[in-house]
Nucleic acid binder design. Structure first.
Lengths: 248, 248
DNA sequence: CGGCTCATTGAGTCGAGTCAACACCCGTGG
DNA sequence: CCACGGGTGTTGACTCGACTCAATGAGCCG
């Protein structure tokens, strides 16, 4: 099916080692000593490119690897029997996607690019072997999974008792925190996902999302311009919703 | 504070090795060869007893160990700033609790006994070391965490779009599956938690839980007697809610 | 210029929450 | 032995927040 592209089309990212990657301080390598980084480097297949809407993997695909997002953004979603989807997470550069599936050997959810993206593929079997040689890597990976659990728990709290306002506020707050982690502005950023995805993720109707965006703007909490968001009053945004967001 | 109990009061469980434990087929040992079970056995502190309402750990406690439930049942819950709690999970015999906290080195949530319970304490630092020697244990532990993520995701789907009926139905279905995993009846069982905990967990008011229990009974789906539940028509129970529950 | 998808806004409905009263069970103590 | 009290569970009446349906606007690409 796929025709091997001529070598000049291999994206730049493919030739950048973890050493030179701007994300190394928040990605997997942070757990690995420089001397051992080579080994990690060797097992990683870098720079796989995805077009907007393209799948990284689909539910029921066999689980072979986890992926570090290099650029762009992905969403993961699960499908219920009656065919409607549930967005379970958004993944930004430096984050690891695909950790569902370890227990079943096949993926439970699907991962789809929200925009043109590149990812680094980390074959899981190799990662496991390497984790045995590099205890700090094993620990870091346990830690990543634990954080995934924590984030799910935070979202769970949100969905189970919070109002629509709180949910939207929490989305802004977590997005801002993740921007900051990458060294970007936590005040001004662009949401990579549609209102539909937001609604689906937060368990709200698209219309509700839209209405709340508008109202938050009227209240002077944010400024919205399509997918561009500017946080004007993070105090009141958090305070109103009285949320305990995971901060690392 | 605690007075060391005379040796005859050490619970029976404390002297049972994993070898002889009836739960070994669904608990950690399933990933360990008989020859190596001794090593696992040695690091486990067995038979810690908890009275109803007693805490196993509290949020912000330093993270030292994970725990295998031997008997009874626990709930985990998080507290938001404004002081109201959110139940994040229930843990039955053979299940591992406490895996939050790996990434932060302190617990994010609290764990509390729903009834008189015993747990086996597995110091995490030891477990990590042992995982390096026993790759299948490392894999199993990754797998357990992955399953935890999957379960959270399933719950997430539930909370984000499903009706109150669906949520209750899903609770019954997952409880039944977990009973079956332990080799017990999936038709007839006892809920270890109060209606309040159920409501909190599923994001419903207690009154709603109660009403739905009553209606399900009227519809001939279940028979309820306090906390005793008999599933009469699992077909319609699942079918009505059209849910994709994680099955292993 | 259509023909898309995505986003916003308005009007009406309904499911689940809140408030309130009451039933039940069980352990305690008079 | 029974009365009392607290925790737990059930039921009813009323309210409101978010969903649904429907129409319109805005941006994008062929």
């Amino acid at each position: 099916m796929a025709i091997t592209p001529p070598s000049r089309e291999i994206p730049l990212a493919a030739r950048v080692s973890c050493n030179d990657c701007s994300l190394s301080q928040i990605c997997l390598p942070l757990a690995v000593e420089p001397e051992q980084l080579d080994e990690l480097d060797r097992i990683i297949r870098r720079g796989r490119a995805l077009k907007r809407g393209e799948h990284l993997y689909r539910a029921a695909d066999s689980f072979e690897a986890v992926y570090a997002v290099r650029s762009g953004a992905l969403k993961t979603y699960a499908m219920s029997e009656d065919g409607d989807e549930q967005v379970t997470g958004f993944y930004l550069p430096g984050e690891i996607v695909g950790m569902d599936g370890i227990s079943t050997a096949y993926h439970i959810s699907s991962a789809k690019a929200l925009e043109t993206s590149t990812v680094c593929e980390i074959p899981f079997a190799h990662l496991e072997k390497l984790s045995i040689k590099i205890p700090s890597l094993q620990h870091h990976f346990f830690s990543l999974m634990s954080r995934e659990i924590q984030e799910d728990r935070a979202l769970l709290m949100l969905l189970s008792k919070k109002s629509a306002d709180d949910r939207i506020a929490a989305l802004f707050t977590t997005m801002a925190a993740r921007q900051e982690r990458r060294g970007l502005s936590s005040r001004l950023f662009r949401l990579p996902m549609s209102r539909y995805d937001i609604g689906n993720y937060l368990g709200l109707a698209v219309e509700t999302v839209s209405r709340i965006f508008t109202r938050f703007q009227q209240q002077g909490l944010i400024r919205v311009q399509g997918r561009e968001i500017e946080i004007l009053d993070s105090e009141r945004l958090c305070g109103d919703s009285r949320l305990q967001i995971i901060k690392d």
